[in-house]
C-alpha cells in the first residue's frame, strides 16, 4: 500500500470540499473493498477522506411508505432493520448473503454500491486489464471467464459487478442521492453504473468528488413478497455465480407486479426489464417464468467458458419466481 494522508470529515460539506480540492483524493467508507484494493496496488489515492462516520447512518420511513437509507448505514444494520425485513425482505436477504458478518459490520451502504469487480485479471497487476490500465488489453479473454458476464459486456471488458445489495436495490427501483460542491442530484440506481463499452475504467456516472449520501427505496407493494437467491460454489462467504432478486405481487394466479434483477452476470446490477414485461399481467406459471427468462437472456452471450451461466441464470430465475408464487399465494 502506498503512503497516503488521511482526513476524517465531520460533515458532508467538508468531505466533498476536501475531495473536490485535492487531486487524487478518494472517499473512504467501511474500507472493506478500497483498503484491499490499495494493499493490492490497484488503487493509489494520495488522500483518503473518511466519510464512514458522517451522520448519515439512519434508516427513515418516507411519507409515501418508502425508505431512506443513509449512506453510512452499516450493511448489518440495514439487514436487521425491522422495516427492511418486513417491507423489503429481498434487501435484507441480499445483504445477508454477501461477505461475512465481520465485513457486513464494517461495510457501508454507499461503499457497497461502489464495489469494484472481482475479476481475477483486474486483481492481478501482472496481467493486462483495460479497467485497471486503460488500453492495456483484457487478459480475461482467452483466460478464465467463469466469473465473467453474459450481458452488457464489451470486447474491452467482461468483468461483472460483485454487489448483492445492488441487485436487490435495482430491482426495487432505488434512487441514489449524491452530493458535491455543485449541489445535490438524484440518480436512479439503474443509471448509476455504466456498461464498459470502450471505457471500462469508468464504472459509474459519478464524478470523482461526488459523494453518495443516501439511497431511497420507493414503496413497492410487490416487495413484501420478495426474495434474493444467490448461487455460489460455497454455501456461504463467496461471490455469486448468478444471483436473482425478485418480487411478485399476485392476484389469484395473475401477476400484477413483478420486479426482477440479476447479479453476477453483468458489469452492473442488471434490472431484467424484458422479463418483467413478460411477467406483468401474465399467469404465474412455469411456462411464463421460462418465457420471461428467455426474453431477458435473448441477448446473453457466453464469454469463453461461462456458457453455463446462461442456463444457470435461466434456471435460477424460474426457481426464484416459482418459490415466490408458492409463498405469495399462501393465505
Amino acid at each position: 500500500m502506498r503512503a497516503f494522508s488521511y482526513v476524517s470529515a465531520p460533515d458532508v460539506a467538508t468531505a466533498v470540499r476536501a475531495v473536490s480540492e485535492t487531486p487524487n483524493a478518494k472517499f473512504l467508507g467501511g474500507g472493506t473493498n478500497l483498503v484491499d484494493l490499495m494493499r493490492e496496488n490497484i488503487e493509489h489515492p494520495d488522500v483518503l477522506v473518511d466519510v464512514s462516520r458522517l451522520p448519515l447512518n439512519g434508516v427513515e420511513e418516507l411519507p409515501d411508505g418508502g425508505l431512506r437509507i443513509g449512506a453510512t448505514v452499516r450493511n448489518s444494520a440495514l439487514a436487521a432493520h425491522p422495516l427492511v425485513r418486513t417491507r423489503y425482505p429481498v434487501v435484507s436477504q441480499a445483504v445477508l448473503n454477501g461477505a461475512s458478518a465481520q465485513l457486513r459490520n464494517m461495510a457501508t451502504v454507499g461503499g457497497n454500491l461502489l464495489q469494484r469487480t472481482r475479476c481475477l485479471y483486474f486483481y492481478d497487476t501482472a496481467s493486462p486489464c483495460n479497467k485497471r490500465e486503460p488500453g492495456s488489453g483484457c487478459a480475461a479473454l482467452g483466460g478464465f471467464t467463469r466469473d465473467a458476464g453474459i450481458l452488457g459486456v464489451s470486447e474491452r471488458c467482461v468483468a461483472t459487478h460483485p454487489s448483492d445489495l445492488c441487485v436487490a436495490l435495482v430491482a426495487l427501483g432505488a434512487v441514489v442521492e449524491v452530493e458535491s460542491t455543485r449541489g445535490t442530484r438524484r440518480i436512479p440506481l439503474t443509471d448509476l453504473h455504466r456498461l464498459p463499452a470502450d471505457t471500462p475504467q469508468r464504472e459509474t456516472v459519478l464524478e470523482r468528488d461526488e459523494l453518495i449520501t443516501a439511497v431511497e427505496l420507493p414503496p413497492v407493494p410487490a416487495a413484501a413478497n420478495s426474495r434474493y437467491r444467490k448461487v455460489r460454489d460455497r454455501a456461504s462467504y463467496a461471490f455469486a455465480l448468478v444471483s436473482v432478486a425478485a418480487a411478485l405481487r399476485l392476484d389469484g394466479d395473475t401477476i400484477t407486479e413483478a420486479r426482477l434483477a440479476l447479479g453476477g452476470i453483468a458489469p452492473k446490477p442488471w434490472r431484467a426489464n424484458e422479463a418483467e414485461h413478460v411477467l406483468t399481467g401474465a399467469r404465474a406459471t412455469e411456462e411464463t417464468f421460462d418465457r420471461a427468462a428467455a426474453a431477458e437472456l435473448d441477448r446473453a452471450q457466453a464469454v469463453g467458458d461461462n456458457a453455463f451461466k446462461i442456463e444457470l441464470t435461466r434456471r435460477t430465475i424460474v426457481a426464484t419466481l416459482r418459490e415466490l408464487t408458492h409463498e405469495g399465494s399462501r393465505p
Binding site: 488521511y6 474500507g31 483498503v35 494493499r39 461477505a99 461475512s100 465481520q102 465485513l103 459490520n105 464494517m106
Partner: peptide, 27 residues
C-alpha cells in the same frame, strides 16, 4: 490473508466483530 477472506484477524470494536486487517487503525 490480510484481505478480509479468512477471519483470523477478527476482533471486537465496541463489541462488534470486525476484520482488523481491512480496518485502518486510524479509522
Amino acid at each position: 490473508c490480510d484481505q478480509g477472506a479468512c477471519g483470523a484477524c477478527t476482533v471486537l470494536a465496541d463489541g462488534e466483530r470486525i476484520n482488523a486487517c481491512l480496518a485502518l487503525a486510524v479509522q
